[in-house]
Design a protein around this nucleic acid. Structure first.
Length: 894
RNA sequence: AGGCGCGUAGCUCAGUGGGAGAGCGCCACCUUGACACGGUGGAGGUCGGCGGUUCAAUCCCGCCCGCGCCUACCA
């Protein structure tokens, strides 16, 4: 039999195992296969960056899910891919160019885009490598990229169709302008950080015919675009000002009136009068529309002021702010300033302050799309896990605004709209047109803008399968089963996928959305490069192995909460894998030789108490894992396997089996024991495989194989409550099998060890152990286990007593089921022993008093369920008996 | 401002209307032929605070304190 190295070293097998899977083409979906299917699409990582630990979590959970489904025998597809990430990628490449002293404009659109493609190839390769290293069982034959021809076709089809339906329109609206990346942004791409210290600056507008109106602003430069001053119609202070003209200090000819607007002007705030800049403030924009005000845009795309700013034209917006303040002060119009906390919107990518600005852009009308999406979740067609995210989802969709989808970038899907130089009409088409659809003129030019990246990402769950074609893949794998993602992109992505899938395909995109938390550091802080607390998945895998990382991430995931990842946790689970390695190593070394060739069949009648204990525990673990996985409780699944393998399999089963397996050739008992342990280990490796695929595959490959089994663990059956996947007897009485060993073997061994340790008896010192069952039903089992108890408790002799233990110097313990006596001639510290037993007596007495109090309460006995009352009565009887025995022993000591 | 969530052992976190748990850490002992990435034993908690419901509350309800996140607003 192949032997295993003493300590496990993941590096020695990880790549070899990955090759094994790849050569077998084990992860490819086959729509022609029939039977049950399971499909999932990866949330495509941005092709710009490398993968961080958050990706590792997301992909680990997905791989755990998909590997389990595959091992359940389904035709599984997990589609991998990457996202072109418009702004992010374009910016990275521009930065790269700048380092060489180049700008994208110098390069020109075509050559710039070529540069980005090169960049994409490099990072794409890196991402794929990391995914493979993580063990992700993706179907690489179906890999996609959002700019692939097929997916681009889906984007164009979507745009044209929505345009035809009137759901996409072009219009002049107030949008968020990112000065940093010089493009429009959607509302979601604008971040609001912690409020910072700002200034609320007041100045006066002189009113024609006398008087003045004082207004305040955090952005004084916007007064250059003011076209009105609003007051509340009922505000007595301003009532007679309404309709009068105010004089703009820099544009005296501009028509600026005092208007009454009860929505914009709040009498409670400030002076009750507010300046109106319709082209640069969302609320003012709405006010401007209500009153038909002129809208004056004062900004250039780069954040400097344009010609509308008159004497301030050409200045940067922040420079202009100071100059405007200065000029107003010089004119005697300054009316004070006070500190003010404010949180300006910032660009998600460049972190520069976003300017609200009037601009002509493309928009999607969202309300009609949102309604079915709300219904899909409300009706339960799509399930959120945890369901608490539903509220957030509903709230956003119920208050949804139109989506600005055009971006002034070069990297992305170009908008399929052509502007006619002659008639000015716009032609939107599936195929590139050669003439204006309206006047037939050939002088048309494609819209220079590209689409928001999320416009293509929203199609991902069906575009990857070939939509708008009705491909066999689309028929079979859409809708997908589970989407696993972070809650931070619930609006960006999840909601939009639901809306677009329902609208375009008539189907939901996925049945279940599993939201996980963020990965944080050991102190619960957000990981970031600047804090220096970011954990690099590659480095972690180098140090601890892929499986330890995966296992740790899965073990620490709990629905709805973030993960505090710590080095010590990783070390702990790595130690667990080492333990598993060595347990397998032990079995392989000690197995009776003939098991290498053939595992004997056995049935329940062939099993002894220890076999039954092991099988029962294993089957219980299978049930626990199954339940946990159904509920996406990876932490609980992992905990069940961990506990079973380490504490049941290693600590008890292996230790107890050493005598049976010691002789090598074994005999009948050894052969059965060996076969049972092998089968149970086999089953446990299967259960564990989705979490730790590499080590389990490696170990499994070393196990003697039964006939007709899959050559790979990755495609072998996983144990379920209906089918344990290994030939262990399933009908046995599990609670009885476990109780027998726990009561009559594990308990007395623990008691002796405790006595030894408590009294400071060296492990090497031989002792004699006397056992007395506190219930006669255990006598036979106790006698049967006596020898094994002796081995594990390191006792020379173990006797089962008929009557009371002899009254001689001894360490004594009165357990729940067994009373243990360790006679120690001349070595017992009477005082110490008395103190220990007294503590025990006090504890039992407290418990007895509590139970008596409870049981003497008539309300409890009447109202509590009978089984609860019976249980407590039983406990009381047991506690009283133990207490009596402890008191008797104490009496002997005095 | 509104919404959501959290507060349980030194740390990070599970958990349940009926005898407080895990991992790591800590203490003591042990080179036992799978494993020192190990073994054995042990210490450690008013389950954030105050009320309420209940025969019974760490769990359900209300209020308070502390922390986090999301959405909105911010002349």
């Amino acid at each position: 039999m192949k032997t295993l190295d003493k300590a496990f070293d993941p590096e020695t097998y990880e790549s070899r195992i990955a090759q094994l899977w790849e050569q077998a083409d084990a992860f490819r979906g086959d729509p022609s296969r029939g039977g049950e299917r399971f499909s999932m699409v990866i949330p495509p990582p941005n092709v710009t960056g490398s993968l961080h630990i958050g990706h590792a979590l997301d992909y680990t959970l997905q791989d755990v899910i998909v590997r389990r489904q595959r091992m359940l025998g389904k035709d599984t597809v997990w589609v991998p891919g990457t996202d072109h990430a418009g702004i992010a990628t374009q910016m990275v490449v521009e930065r790269h160019l700048r380092e060489q002293g180049l700008t994208r404009h110098e390069l020109g659109r075509e050559r710039f885009v070529e540069e980005v493609w090169k960049w994409k190839e490099t990072y794409h390769a890196r991402i794929v490598e990391t995914l493979r290293r993580l063990g992700c069982s993706c179907d690489w034959s179906r890999e996609r990229f959002t700019l692939d021809p097929g997916l681009s076709r889906a984007v164009r089809e979507t745009f044209v169709r929505l345009h035809e339906e009137g759901l996409i329109y072009r219009g002049e609206r107030l949008i968020n302008w990112s000065v940093g990346s010089q493009t429009a942004l959607s509302d979601l791409e604008v971040l609001r950080d912690e409020p910072e210290q700002g200034e609320l600056w007041s100045f006066a507008y002189p009113v024609e015919g006398g008087g003045e109106i004082v207004v305040a602003t955090t952005r004084p430069e916007t007064m250059l675009g003011d076209t009105a001053v609003a007051v509340h119609p009922d505000d007595p202070r301003w009532k007679d000002m309404i309709g009068r003209r105010v004089i703009h200090p820099f544009f005296p000819e501009r028509e600026i009136r005092v208007i009454a607007d009860e929505i914009l002007a709040d009498p409670e705030t400030g002076t009750g009068a507010v300046k109106v800049t319709p082209a640069h403030d969302p609320n003012d924009f709405e006010c401007g529309r209500r009153h038909g005000l002129p809208m004056i845009n004062i900004l250039n795309p780069d954040g400097t002021l344009n010609e509308n700013a008159g004497p301030f034209a050409g200045l940067d917006r922040f420079e202009a702010r100071e100059r405007v303040k200065q000029a107003l002060t010089e004119r005697g119009l300054f009316r004070g300033s006070r500190p003010h906390m404010y949180a300006p919107g910032r660009c998600q990518r460049t972190h520069t302050i976003v300017e609200p600005m009037l601009s002509t852009q493309w928009f999607v009308r969202m309300k009609p799309l949102a309604e079915p999406a709300i219904e899909a979740v409300r009706s339960g067609a799509i399930r959120f896990v945890p369901s608490s995210w539903e509220k957030t989802y509903f709230h956003w969709l119920e208050n949804i605004e139109d989506w600005c989808i055009s971006r002034q970038l070069w990297w992305g899907h170009r908008i399929p709209a052509w502007h006619c130089a002659d008639c000015g009409e716009i032609t939107v088409a599936r195929e590139d047109p050669s003439a204006c659809g309206s006047c037939g003129s050939p002088r048309i030019e494609q819209d220079p803008d590209v689409l928001d990246t999320w416009f293509s990402s929203q199609l991902w769950p069906f575009s990857v399968f070939g939509w708008p074609e009705r491909t066999p893949d689309l028929e079979r794998y859409h809708p997908t089963d589970v989407l696993v993602t972070g809650f931070d992109i619930i609006f960006f992505w999840v909601a939009r996928m639901i809306m677009s899938s329902l609208h375009l395909t008539g189907k939901i995109p996925f049945r279940t959305v599993l939201f996980h938390g963020l990965v944080r550091d050991a102190q619960g802080r957000k990981m970031s490069k600047s804090t220096g607390n970011a954990i690099d998945p590659g480095e972690t895998m180098d140090r601890h192995g892929v499986d330890a990382l995966r296992f740790t991430l899965a073990a620490m995931t709990s629905p709805g909460s973030d993960i505090a990842l710590s080095e010590s946790r990783l070390e702990g689970y790595r130690a667990f894998l080492n333990k598993l390695w060595n347990a397998t190593r032990f079995l392989l070394m000690r197995l009776p030789a003939e098991l290498e060739r053939e595992r004997p069949d056995y049935d329940e009648a062939d099993l002894d108490d220890l076999d039954r204990y092991l099988v029962a525990s294993f089957l219980d673990t299978v049930d626990a894992v199954d339940r946990a996985m159904d509920a996406f409780r990876f932490d609980q699944a992992v905990e069940a396997i961990y506990h079973f393998l380490w504490h049941t399999f290693c600590d008890w089963s292996i230790e107890l089996s050493k005598p049976d397996l010691a002789s090598g050739d074994g005999g009948e008992r050894g052969r059965i024991r060996g076969a049972v342990m092998l089968d149970v280990l086999d089953g446990a490796l299967r259960l564990l495989h989705p979490f730790a695929p590499f080590i389990t595959e490696e170990l499994w490959q070393h196990l003697p194989r039964r006939h007709g089994e899959s050559p790979l663990l990755a495609t072998a059956r996983i144990p379920t409550p209906d089918d344990p996947a290994v030939p262990v007897p399933r009908a046995l009485d599990r609670p009885a099998a476990r109780a027998l060993v726990e009561h009559w073997l594990i308990e007395p061994v623990g008691a002796v060890r405790g006595l030894r340790s408590g009294a400071g008896i060296a492990p090497s010192r031989p002792i004699r152990v006397l056992l007395r069952p506190r219930d006669e039903s255990g006598r036979e089992a106790l006698a049967r286990f006596a020898d094994r108890i002796g081995v594990l408790a390191r006792a020379e002799r173990v006797e089962v007593l008929d009557g009371a233990p002899p009254d001689e110097p001894a360490l004594r313990h009165v357990g729940e089921h067994v009373e243990v006596t360790v006679p120690l001639e001349g070595a017992v510290d009477i005082e110490q022993e008395r103190a220990r037993l007294s503590r025990e007596r006090d504890k039992l007495a407290r418990e007895r008093d509590g139970l008596r109090r409870k049981l003497s309460n008539p309300a409890f006995v009447e109202k509590a369920p009978a089984e609860v009352v019976d249980k407590d009565r039983g406990r009381l009887a047991s506690v009283e008996a133990r207490l009596a025995e402890v008191e008797r022993l104490l009496g002997q000591l005095s």
